[in-house]
Each structure stands twice: as structure tokens, then as C-alpha cells.
Amino acid sequence: MQEFKAEEILEGLRNRNTEILDFIYDKYFYQIKVFINQNNGTEEDAKDIYQDAILIIYQKIRQNNLTLKCSFNTYLYSVCRLLWLKQLEKRKLKQVFLEESGKFIDLNEDILSIDERNERYKLYQDHFQKLSYNCQKILELFLARIQLKEIAYLLGLKSDLYVKKRKHQCKEKLIASIKNDPRFKEITN
């Protein structure tokens, strides 16, 4: 397996490079899985925690808010560990002594707030991706500040007024479907 330096891993994550993602998975996922399994978690939990951790690290890299003071492995393990502790607490299974499967560092609270925001984003994006192709495109183009006339032209719609009406319908459909999702109550409470 080709090895990558920490800087290359971070840069690859910033670009969502598949080769780097595969490298991280092949090299580090097993350790995370062992840790979760040893501490009351399932295979599915391990997958979720690992993916959430990668998304958090990605967010931090994008915000230029990540300077590694340890190896990437230790950092990833520490993020997963923190997320799993939070999950155990939620499930009222918190244990004082965790079975460790790697080295870890203490992380500050911003990891958890990024995770909460990611969870909300996931909910919104899941419902956005369930909208029709045209609805998704209208909202994307509208939010990209493309002129209504131009959107009408691109999507072959009748007029700019019609685009505005469709945009409104699509957005309301999206909001209603988000609010009807049981996760919405959990997240907003």
C-alpha cells in the first residue's frame, strides 16, 4: 500500500480525493472498529462514527482550523473516541473506563458542535436530494444568484415569474419534508 504523509492526507481530504479516502479507510478503519466493538458498539456504529469523524475533519480543514500536533491516526482515533463517548452518553451506557485500541489526545468542544451541525446538514441534504431533479436545479441556481430569466432559459421554463413560483413551491416542499422527518424533532430539541 502506498504511504502518505500527514500533509498529503489533509490535502487529499480537502479535495475529497478517492485515493486518500481509500488509504485512510484501509489503514485506520479497523482500529476504530475494534474500539467501537470493544465498547458496546456494532459494525454499523463503527461505520457511522468513522464517517462522522472524517466529515468533521474535512470541515475543520476547509475552515483552515486544523493543525495536527500528533499523527493523523491519533487525531482520527481521538475524534472517533469523543464521538463514541457522546453516543454512549446518549444511550446512557457511558463507562468510566473505555477499552482503548489506540493512542488519543484531548480535543476541544468544537468537534461536538461541528458534529451537531453536520447532523443537521445531513438531514437537510437528504431531503434536498429526494426532490425532483428540476427542483434541485432551480434551488441551486437560485441560491447561486443566477438571474431568474437565465434560470428560465437554462431549464426551459415559461418565464421568470414561473421560476419564482416553482422556486417557492420547491423550497416549501423541502422545508415541509424536513419538518416531517422524526430526526428533525430530535435535532431541534
Binding site: 475529497r16 472524517i54 466529515l55 474535512y58 446538514y121 437537510y124 441534504q125 441551486e140 441560491l143 423541502l174
Partner: peptide, 26 residues
């Protein structure tokens, strides 16, 4: 706040892309 955040989320194609890649990888 909800509608504002929804707007931000649906513009974040990077997150959607990464999540899909992770899912496919798994």
C-alpha cells in the same frame, strides 16, 4: 434560522459529495 441553514446546507456540495464517497467506499 432553519431556512437560512437549509440554504447553506444545500449549497454545500462538498459535504454531499464526501458523504456519498464515504458511503460508496463502505
Amino acid at each position: 434560522q432553519l431556512r437560512k441553514e437549509v440554504n447553506l446546507a444545500i449549497q454545500d456540495s462538498g459535504m454531499m459529495d464526501l458523504r456519498e464517497k464515504l458511503e460508496m467506499q463502505h
